[in-house]
Amino acid sequence: MAENAARHHGNRHGRSEQARLAVLEAADDLLVEKGFAGLTIEAIAASAGVSKQTIYRWWSTKTDILLDAFLQDLAEDLPVPDHGSLERDLRHYLRNLAYFLTRTDAGAVLRALLGHAQHDVDFAAVLRTRYLDEQLSRDKLALERAVERGELPDSLDIAAEVDQLVGPIYYRALVTGGAVDEGFTDALVDACLRRVS
């Protein structure tokens, strides 16, 4: 028991991966429950069962915590499929992207982070570097694989196709709140296949 208490350094988790994950999960949950404005370091610490000092060892602000939580969720929840077929890969990926943005806690975190980035230029730069560049690579991957397989021409403007494929999903998810169902995403894929065929 004494050994266990020493290892935990005065809190339930100690300076461990378990504590880090507890903080990320607490931040996700509290954001959904209280919204961005109602989210505080104090509330995250209490929910995670760690001290504020433990949090400040790893993160400076609540947005830093939310960004780490979001990036971890993104890596786990939004893989790019590789079925060997552009049509199947795009249908699968766009359906998952739409679901991720509109129906998951991680999507709520992203919406909060994008909103905050409109008022904090330093954070906006961090968000672009840590999320948007990686996400753009993810969004292009199915098209790049299709070019490598010879399914699409080398001359394809992949950036323009990505804009037309995912742009409408982000617009509905983040701006209008319109439906982003499978019919919508499949229509985007159909339009892309017509353009590139």
Score class of each variant (00 low, 15 high):
37 A>C: 04
153 P>I: 01
121 V>Q: 14
2 A>Y: 12
172 R>N: 11
108 A>W: 09
182 E>C: 11
77 D>N: 14
131 Y>G: 01
154 D>A: 04
131 Y>S: 07
81 P>L: 09
21 L>T: 14
122 D>A: 14
91 R>N: 09
171 Y>A: 15
131 Y>D: 04
148 E>I: 07
11 N>Q: 15
110 L>T: 06
33 E>I: 08
148 E>D: 10
103 R>M: 09
62 K>E: 09
183 G>N: 06
41 I>L: 15
196 V>R: 03
128 R>A: 12
193 L>Y: 01
94 L>P: 07
166 V>Y: 09
82 D>P: 11
85 S>F: 05
182 E>A: 14
66 L>W: 02
130 R>N: 02
196 V>I: 03
17 E>T: 13
57 R>Y: 11
37 A>T: 13
75 A>V: 13
7 R>S: 14
67 L>M: 11
67 L>T: 01
144 E>Q: 12
15 R>H: 11
161 E>S: 04
153 P>M: 00
93 Y>E: 04
115 G>L: 13
29 D>A: 15
111 R>S: 15
98 A>F: 11
71 L>N: 15
177 G>W: 00
120 D>C: 13
46 A>I: 08
190 D>A: 11
159 A>Y: 12
167 G>C: 02
98 A>T: 10
178 G>W: 07
65 I>M: 02
80 V>W: 06
79 P>C: 07
1 M>P: 14
34 K>Q: 09
24 L>H: 08
45 A>R: 03
58 W>Y: 15
115 G>Y: 11
62 K>Y: 00
117 A>G: 10
187 A>V: 00
179 A>T: 14
154 D>P: 01
159 A>K: 13
58 W>A: 05
17 E>C: 03
91 R>P: 03
84 G>M: 04
140 K>C: 09
52 K>H: 05
19 A>Y: 03
147 V>I: 12
10 G>P: 07
142 A>F: 07
60 S>Y: 08
191 A>D: 04
57 R>W: 03
173 A>H: 08
157 D>F: 02
21 L>C: 10
15 R>V: 08
14 G>E: 06
159 A>H: 10
143 L>A: 02
14 G>M: 12
164 Q>I: 06
148 E>V: 07
188 L>S: 08
70 F>K: 00
28 D>C: 13
142 A>T: 04
1 M>I: 13
143 L>Q: 07
84 G>S: 08
49 G>Y: 03
184 F>E: 03
74 L>D: 11
190 D>M: 02
130 R>F: 05
192 C>D: 01
58 W>Q: 04
149 R>S: 08
71 L>P: 05
106 A>H: 05
76 E>S: 13
